[in-house]
Design a protein around this nucleic acid. Structure first.
Lengths: 165, 165
DNA sequence: CTCAATGCAAAGTATTTGCACGCTC
DNA sequence: GAGCGTGCAAATACTTTGCATTGAG
């Protein structure tokens, strides 16, 4: 049994919940997939291995995994909630490519320190923080440059200011 | 006419759109309210001054204001989209109190600089960025301490890891 | 007069809930 | 066996869309 499975089972017992085949499978698939899965993404993956599992169970199990400290909710900006591994996965921030959707994870101790300092200045107690940078990744920047050349005569892109998801 | 109204009218004409009483009123109410309004918040305020205006028009006008550069979308974490003033309102980040919902705006040039540096390292072109700190504000920290005392015998709070909205 | 804007209702999304049946403990 | 878990369908919450009518340019 992996460490994560142990944590999950301990959490389930501690909370007076029950150990089921569905929960095991969902956790298993979640752990095998190193991505930012939405509930529906995970649902589809799980379905391949057991077509009887319902959407709702996946939703509920993801919540459970989050409570157990194994998963972490992340919302990017498309309205859906994604989940990423939380156990033994240090806090990090995300850069999201608006062209191809690629997600680059990064971490900066300086950033964390300054955030703490800003919070302290306002006597604010930090529980969690989220930094998300939207833009264009290196790979896509070339493609965008190409496209802009072809658009010479067309109108420029409308740049809509959006912060948040 | 305020500067913002001029910008709006110029944007409307430039885009071949039309100048209507509804749009004027919605912009007016929006500008008078220095808050992070959701579309529905704004809808209710506008309703007070003209009960005939529909929800949809407010939604659409907020999108328009965003395109015109007067508003900026912000999503906090409750599933709804909020809007804040964008014109002559420097970029800033938010601390959100999980107890009372208060929103503290702050700005740090250092933070911005480090973010740019991190992006440059990945050859990532930043279009926008969002930093949100969730926690407990100074005012509420006292109240939380009081509550915890009374909870002495109870179970500790479950800390659910959530990042994003 | 033409075409965009409006407001209603209906349709979409993403997620949550109610409930009868089934399975752990 | 008692009670949680499951899966379905229905409900909810927020936002978007279709469409006939209204109104700006």
């Amino acid at each position: 049994m992996t460490e994560e499975q142990e944590i999950f089972h301990r959490y389930i017992q501690k909370s007076g919940l029950k150990h089921t085949a569905q929960r095991d499978l969902i956790l298993d698939v979640f752990l095998r997939t190193e991505k930012h899965l939405s509930s529906e993404d995970l649902y589809r993956l799980v379905q391949k291995e057991d077509p009887n599992i319902g959407q709702t169970t996946v939703y509920r199990t993801l919540k459970l995994l989050t409570e157990a400290g194994l998963a972490r909710e992340v919302r990017f900006g498309d309205g859906r909630t994604h989940y990423e591994h939380n156990y033994k996965h240090q806090h990090h921030d995300h850069m999201i490519c608006m062209e191809c959707g690629e997600i680059i994870e990064f971490y900066s101790a300086e950033l964390e320190a300054i955030q703490e300092a800003m919070a302290a200045k306002h006597r604010f107690e930090v529980k969690q923080h989220l930094l998300r940078i939207l833009g264009v990744c290196a790979k896509c920047r070339r493609e965008v440059r190409e496209r802009d050349k072809q658009e010479m005569a067309g109108q420029p892109h409308v740049q809509v200011a959006t912060v948040g998801e």
